[in-house]
Design a protein around this nucleic acid. Sequence first.
DNA 1: ACTTAAGTGGGGATTAGTGGGGGAAAGTGG
DNA 2: CCACTTTCCCCCACTAATCCCCACTTAAGT
Lengths: 152, 152
Amino acid sequence: MFRGINNLNIDMKGRLAIPSKYRGAVISESASQIIVTIDHTDKCLLVYPMADWLLVEKQLNSLNNMNRRARNVQRLLLGHAAECELDSQGRILVPAPLRNFAGLKKKLVLVGQLNKFELWDAEQWIIQRDSWIVEAQEDDFDNDEALAQVSI
Amino acid sequence: MFRGINNLNIDMKGRLAIPSKYRGAVISESASQIIVTIDHTDKCLLVYPMADWLLVEKQLNSLNNMNRRARNVQRLLLGHAAECELDSQGRILVPAPLRNFAGLKKKLVLVGQLNKFELWDAEQWIIQRDSWIVEAQEDDFDNDEALAQVSI
DNA sequence: ACTTAAGTGGGGATTAGTGGGGGAAAGTGG
DNA sequence: CCACTTTCCCCCACTAATCCCCACTTAAGT
């Protein structure tokens, strides 16, 4: 299970070092195979170990694709899914089209989300995060059934 | 159950000594494993023994993440959750990104909140606390069903 | 006042992260 | 089918962060 935030750099060749604390899990669980795709709501990338991705893919595949929204989600997620492999130094090569989509410059953040990571341009991440915090301050979630039940 | 306020210092390397009165509980209950994450409304950190964190994580993980607000709360809490371990001196290393988020300088306060602690920069804490007191003076909680029932 | 425990600070070894060169492989065009 | 270009992968070197250990200071209890 992946948690936590990591500041890292992508080099000019598009290589991204996966933090060593996560490598063991990826290697043993998914034989170093990683899927990188785009997020369907934000300008960030999603990074899945292959085993976790397959579960997502199965769900997407089972959607009724006569439904317009389902088709569009399939296009976004399946359509951008790139297979990557950890190299001998524990790095993956993030394909150029995906780097462009997320506006990745040099400084990035890799954000653990249990079954996957989100990958953001560092600057964008800060902007978004602060806006989520402001939103949470102004909203006590009374109108949201599920969230109102959560106790932290 | 953690209660009370403690003044403590974080050193230049980002190390924080957990007061010894709390260590026993953390060691026996959670094998010295601690999770530090951010608060979703204030610029402070939350410190959970692992066992308590897992309960929170389970709730967050079960939220439907096609819901925008749920996704954003997951991003904030799960996304910043750093696994830390008590070292041989009973200290944890607070990751740099989290120190920056909460604006931690040298002097901190660690505030017991039963299942977790809050960690504030000492100066910020004083300012916030005073503002909560003013707020409470001006508001008699008549509009809040749950709070109106509380008798202290 | 002495003894023990808790908190604080720092040196040094080790590991992780970063960046660049060269060679292999794949893709492109004549 | 061959030559040329580009992409990508492996290896090495350098830098920065983290961990482990030891020592000193401060506080507490007998």
